[in-house]
């Protein structure tokens, strides 16, 4: 377990190092980018849809996980009742 954790942490450090370099070099020069041509309405709709999708996926995941846990809990309580008193 410890070696797995070490591997995960070291991989993350190596992966994040280039981002630190980018941060140190400062912000990009925006003047070299060309004039905007994408529709603002499409970007607006896309942004709100993505945000809703992200929150919805999280809610569905929590609800499904909770249903599974509740089923397991009921099963365990029945088993405990069946084995008798005196835990």
């Amino acid at each position: 377990m410890t070696s797995t954790l070490t591997r995960i942490v070291s991989t993350l450090v190596v992966a994040l190092f280039p981002l630190g370099e980018a941060l140190a070099s400062g912000a990009a020069d925006l003047s070299k980018y060309k004039e905007e041509s994408v529709s603002g309405g499409s970007l607006l709709v896309a942004a709100y849809l993505v945000m809703w999708a992200l929150v919805s996926v999280f809610v569905v995941r929590v609800v499904l996980g909770q249903a599974k846990t509740e089923a397991r809990l009921t099963e365990l309580s029945e088993q405990i009742d069946a084995t008798g008193d005196g835990g």
């Binding site: 070099s25 912000a27 990009a28 925006l30 980018y33 060309k34 905007e36 970007l43 942004a47």
Partner: peptide
């Protein structure tokens, strides 16, 4: 995700390392 979509219109690009 919402930031880059806004940036695409206001900065002309999705991402910058600021």
């Amino acid at each position: 995700t919402s930031g880059p979509l806004w940036a695409r219109k206001s900065w002309g690009m999705y991402w910058t390392w600021e």
